[in-house]
Simulated assay, not measured.
Amino acid sequence: MAFPDVAQLTALISPAVDPRGWDVEAVKVTKAGKKSVVAVKLDADDRPTLDDLEVVSTEISELLDAAEERGDANFGAGYTLEVSTPGVDLPLTAPRHWRRNRHRLVALTEEGQKSLWRIGALAEDDSAVILVAADKKKSGNRDVSVFPEDVRELQLSSAPIAVVEVEFNESPATQLEITAKTYQEATQWREEHK
C-alpha cells in the first residue's frame, strides 16, 4: 500500500476535525528522505488556539497511527506531523475565508490591477461581499471619509484573486463603520449617500 494521498489523509483526520466544526484548509505531504512531513492547515470561525491545535494534533497522530496498524495506510519509514492554521497568505477562495477576515485589508487583483480594500459583510447567500476602498486616499494614520463610490459589492462567483494584507497602522474608524454594517445595511448606505 502506498503513502496516503491528500484525499485519503483528509478522510483519516476528519474524526478529529469535524466534531469541532473546523475546516481542513490544506493537507500537504512533503517527502523528506525516508520520512515524510504531513502538514495540515486547520481553521474555524472561532480561530483555533495553540492549545486547541496541540490537542487536535495528538488526536490526528493517533488516528494516523491506528490507520497504519489496521493496514488502511502505509507511512513507510514514518512521518512528521505539522498542524497549524493557514496564516494570512492563504488566498481567499471560499466564502468562509471572507467571513473570517472581516474588517481586515485585502489585496485584490482584477484584470491585472492590484488594489486594497477592507472586507465588510458577506451576503446571506454567500454570493458576494462588501468591500470598502482602502487605497484611494493616502492618509497615513489619520481617519478619512468614506464616499459611496468607495463601497462596492464583489461577486464571489468571479473567483477573485485576493490575499489578506498585514496592517501595521490602526484601521480608519470610518472604514470600520461600514465594514461593521450588515450586507444589506452597507448596500443601503451606499444608495442613500449617492
Rank of each mutant, 00 (worst) to 15 (best):
R152K: 10
D143R: 02
V129G: 02
W98G: 03
V29S: 12
V55M: 03
S171L: 12
K35N: 14
L92H: 08
T30H: 07
P160R: 03
S171K: 15
H97V: 11
D5M: 02
T80M: 15
D23Y: 08
Q155C: 07
T30I: 06
S157G: 05
Q8P: 00
S61A: 11
V37S: 01
Y183N: 05
V144L: 05
R70I: 13
W189A: 09
F75N: 01
I13K: 12
W22S: 02
P95K: 10
R20V: 01
R118M: 09
I13H: 13
A11N: 05
D5A: 04
H103R: 13
G87I: 00
Q188Y: 02
P172M: 09
A159V: 05
E25P: 14
A44R: 15
L154R: 05
S36Q: 13
I178Y: 03
G78P: 11
N101L: 13
A173L: 09
S84H: 14
A39S: 14
L9Y: 15
R47M: 11
V55K: 12
P15W: 13
L50Y: 03
V17E: 12
G76F: 06
D72K: 14
P95I: 08
T58Q: 09
D72T: 03
T85S: 14
S127Q: 02
V17Y: 15
V88A: 14
V88G: 12
L92P: 12
I130H: 13
V83F: 05
A94C: 00
E192V: 00
W189D: 03
R70A: 14
T109P: 01
E167N: 05
H193M: 06
A26L: 10
A2P: 15
V56D: 07
P95Y: 11
R70T: 10
L81V: 12
V40K: 03
A186P: 09
T187P: 01
K114Y: 07
A133V: 07
L156R: 14
R100Y: 13
V40C: 09
L53V: 07
V40S: 05
R96C: 04
I130E: 15
I119E: 02
R152S: 04
M1A: 08
E149S: 08
S61F: 09
F168E: 01
T174D: 08
S127H: 03
A107H: 02
V24K: 07
S145N: 12
W117C: 04
E82I: 06
A180L: 09
S115L: 09
V17S: 11
L116M: 13
V146N: 00
S57R: 11
A134R: 00
